[in-house]
Design a protein around this nucleic acid. Structure first.
Lengths: 135, 135
DNA sequence: GTAGCTGCAAACCGTTTGCACGTGA
DNA sequence: TCACGTGCAAACGGTTTGCAGCTAC
């Protein structure tokens, strides 16, 4: 029989979670590591990755792959889309609610496919990089 | 002045292109390599990657990142969406034309963002894997 | 007490690169 | 001719893993 795994609220995982909740910047694991390292001097990158994996399984955090295949993390877990800047490689929230509203309506069931989720990521140039270019 | 790079139709690149045009299976670079290797005994994986990069620049081929960050390639370059099977890791075409029709209509310009492209990938279980499970 | 978590270092693996040689236009 | 492409092997970089010790519950 399948016993559900118990997640533990360790100091490190709480710190990860709290940072992601307030940072709306979609950081990578390494960026998070660099921010938290000064406060948690023993912290290791592997722990960041494992903590993020654990938080994901609890649906507390979302993983987004950018168009280079690099993982970013988002503390805002409601269904929304993203924008990836090809220049500065930052990820932005594109909206509060995904522009794909009715997932059920999408005509896919006829092929026998079961959709669990989707990722919609726009790619281009962000307002900051465009402004810099115009100089 | 910026001279445009000339692309050459070498034997290897033609083989890559022709394989992708008929294989509707969204193979990875390694899968393509394994298929072509018997016919091109000197072929190296690096050449496959470089050839695919070159074909992409000519808009002859499309790169799709699956939800594990792995690159797959598609010889069908018109704007369409994909489906990624979480079980067998295969990528399928989801439709002939993307369900996002009017890219211009998306209210993004107000933020000063410039959209060049987007990737919409559904994730779930494909019909083959679902069938297998039901046994 | 014990399942789950941590830090460290090493391994992993898909992809890219440097180099010397080859080849298409 | 010579810019572009190739094969090989080594490097890269983000992520994962094995292990011994630690900690939340």
């Amino acid at each position: 029989m399948s016993m559900k795994k118990q997640f533990r609220a360790t100091e490190q995982k709480v710190a990860l979670y709290e940072y992601l909740k307030k940072a709306r910047s979609h950081p990578t694991a390494e960026e998070i590591y660099n921010v938290l390292k000064p406060s948690y001097r023993q912290l290791s990158l592997a722990t960041v990755y494992r903590g993020l994996e654990s938080l994901q399984k609890q649906n507390a955090v979302l993983e987004i792959l950018d168009l280079n295949g690099k993982a970013h993390f988002d503390g805002f877990v409601h269904n929304h889309d993203h924008f990836f800047c090809e220049k500065c490689k930052k990820i932005y929230d594109f909206n509060e609610k995904s522009i794909l509203k009715n997932l059920q309506d999408i005509p896919c069931a006829r092929r026998g496919f079961k959709i669990n989720s989707y990722q919609l990521i726009f790619s281009g140039k962000c307002h900051i990089c465009r402004k810099k270019e115009r100089r």
